[in-house]
C-alpha cells in the first residue's frame, strides 16, 4: 500500500482526482465477471463442497442419534432390571412377613392348646383328688361305723359272758377302746 501510494503520480494526474470507483469505463467487465465468478463459485461449492459437509454432518447427527438411542435403550433396560429386582425384593419381604406371621399364629395356637390341655388335666386331677377324698371320707365313715359296731359287739360279748357291775363294764369298754387304739387294723 505504501508503494502504491507513492507510485503513479503521472497516472493519477491523467485519471483525474475523482474516486476510481466512479470511473464508468471499468464497470462493464466487472459486472460481467462478478456475476460469472459468483455463479461459477456457486456451482463448484454446490457440487464439490456442500455435499461432503452435509454428509459428514448427517453422519455425525446419525451417530449422535444412534448413540443417544442406545443410551436410552440401555437406560430403559437398567430401569427394567431395577424394577425386577425391586419386585423380587418386595416379594421376598412379603414372603418373610407371611412366614413370620404364620409362625406367630402357630405359636399362639400351640400356646392356647397347651394352656387348654393343662387346664383340662388340672381339672381332671382335681376331680380325681376330690373323688379320692370323697371315697376316703366315705371309707372313714364306714370304718367308724364298723368300729362302733365292733365295740358294741365286744361290749355285748363281755356283758353276755359275765354279769358285770358298772366298774367292770367301764373297765371292759376301756380295754376295748385301748385294744382298738393299740391295734386299729384289727377292726377291719
Amino acid at each position: 500500500m505504501i508503494a502504491s501510494a507513492y507510485a503513479a503520480t503521472a497516472e493519477h494526474a491523467a485519471a483525474g482526482s475523482g474516486m476510481p470507483q466512479f470511473e464508468p469505463s471499468v464497470f462493464q467487465h466487472q459486472i460481467v465477471w462478478s456475476i460469472a465468478s459468483f455463479f461459477v463459485l456457486l456451482y463448484l461449492l454446490k457440487k464439490y463442497v456442500l455435499p461432503p459437509i452435509e454428509k459428514i454432518l448427517d453422519e455425525r447427527g446419525g451417530k449422535i442419534r444412534s448413540d443417544l438411542e442406545a443410551a436410552e435403550k440401555s437406560r430403559q433396560e437398567a430401569d427394567k432390571i431395577r424394577q425386577d429386582v425391586q419386585r423380587q425384593l418386595a416379594a421376598a419381604r412379603r414372603l418373610a412377613d407371611q412366614t413370620v406371621e404364620e409362625a406367630r399364629l402357630e405359636a399362639a395356637k400351640y400356646r392356647d392348646l397347651a394352656r387348654e390341655s393343662l387346664t383340662q388335666e388340672l381339672a381332671k386331677k382335681k376331680s380325681v383328688a376330690l373323688a379320692e377324698i370323697d371315697a376316703a371320707k366315705r371309707a372313714a365313715v364306714a370304718e367308724l361305723h364298723d368300729a362302733v359296731v365292733d365295740i358294741a359287739m365286744l361290749a355285748t360279748e363281755k356283758l353276755i359272758a359275765k354279769s358285770m357291775n358298772k366298774n367292770d363294764v367301764n373297765k371292759v369298754v376301756q380295754e376295748a377302746v385301748a385294744a382298738i387304739q393299740a391295734n386299729p387294723g384289727k377292726l377291719q
Binding site: M1, S4, A5, A8, T9, M19
Partner: peptide, 18 residues
C-alpha cells in the same frame, strides 16, 4: 513533497482487453 494518492489502490487496471 512526494505526490501521494490514498485512493490509488482502488484503481482498476485492465491487464488484458477482451
Amino acid at each position: 513533497a512526494p505526490k501521494m494518492d490514498p485512493l490509488h489502490h482502488f484503481h482498476v487496471t485492465k491487464y488484458l482487453d477482451f
